Amino acid sequence: MNEPLVALVGPTAVGKTKLSLALAQQLEGEIISADSMQIYRGMDIGTAKVGPEEQEIVPHHLIDIVDPDQEFSVADFQERVDQLIPKIYQRGKLPMLVGGTGLYVKAVIEGFLFPEMETDWELRERLEKEAEKEGTEHVHNKLAEVDPALAEKLHPNDLRRVIRGIEVYQQTGQTITYFKEEAKKRPPRYQAVKVGLRRERENLYQRINQRVDLMIKEGLVEEVRELYQQGYDRELVSMQGLGYKELIGHFDGEYDLEEAIRLIKRDTRHFAKRQFTWFKRDDSIHWFDVEEYQFEDLLIEVKGLIREQLQW
């Protein structure tokens, strides 16, 4: 596993899609989506998926691979990408990992030691009932007893991850923290060059607001309503996606459409800030301030870096 790999990362609405399409065409690349929401079928507008026209120009992978009620983990993503990259490389193409889900990118390049285990549905159901009866703090305290480092990072209301932490410990005798620490000791799995895009905060926030308005115009409300009517509820991981959970709240009568749109914009801005905080911790990312370049100049700079780093 030492194939060349490009990772193009950065916060939502920063301009990754446009640059990735141009780079892929000029470097003979194939794009692997590193977006934890674009994996779901029927969720197109809200996840800003590239359209069929773009996918005809440049092959895209790991888009529309599961239904919104199917489970899909970071381990599943890593496994799929590990199968994809050698095939792309054998075709004489450059694998390009593009997206804003930092955990997905990290899993592919650095690798995680994922414990081999079956889902313990009985345990999950029991802990969910305990959370309903005793409160989420009660279940969070159970995690703190076995994996205090993970418990410190997780809010008690992040029940899904709290339960997962307990489940891993009960089945393997080791904590998620242990597996993460072991993963850090391993060398990089691919010969990767990481490119990050950023913009001034106010400009990025303006782009986010404009993009949300465009999504509404393109039919986001209708897209979410259709999923809602099919029975996909807000408890699903997929329906926690930006734009989806806020509109479901509107459909449930909690607020009007204008407030839903305001919440989508606010939550997306907060999400972009968290994304940038995540990526900023990675010293190996080569950052480019998008606003300092004309697009063609940015393309030349990034392409030059990739060719120099990967000898591609």
Rank of each mutant, 00 (worst) to 15 (best):
E28Y: 03
G29R: 03
E30N: 09
S33M: 05
Q38C: 08
R41S: 06
D44E: 12
I45M: 07
I45C: 04
E54R: 07
Q55N: 08
Q55M: 15
H60V: 00
H61V: 00
H61G: 01
L62W: 00
L62S: 08
L62T: 00
D64Y: 12
V66Q: 04
V66I: 15
F72D: 02
F72R: 08
D76L: 06
F77Y: 15
F77S: 05
E79Y: 01
V81E: 06
Q83Y: 06
K87A: 11
K87Q: 13
I88R: 03
Q90G: 11
R91H: 03
R91I: 02
G92C: 08
L94G: 03
P95G: 08
L97M: 12
G100I: 00
L103G: 07
Y104L: 11
Y104T: 02
V105W: 07
K106G: 00
A107I: 01
V108R: 02
G111I: 11
F114Q: 08
P115Q: 11
P115H: 06
P115D: 12
E116T: 13
T119W: 08
W121F: 15
L123V: 13
R124Y: 12
E125F: 07
E125T: 12
L127F: 14
E130T: 04
A131E: 10
E134H: 13
E137I: 06
H138Y: 15
V139G: 08
L143P: 03
D147C: 04
D147N: 05
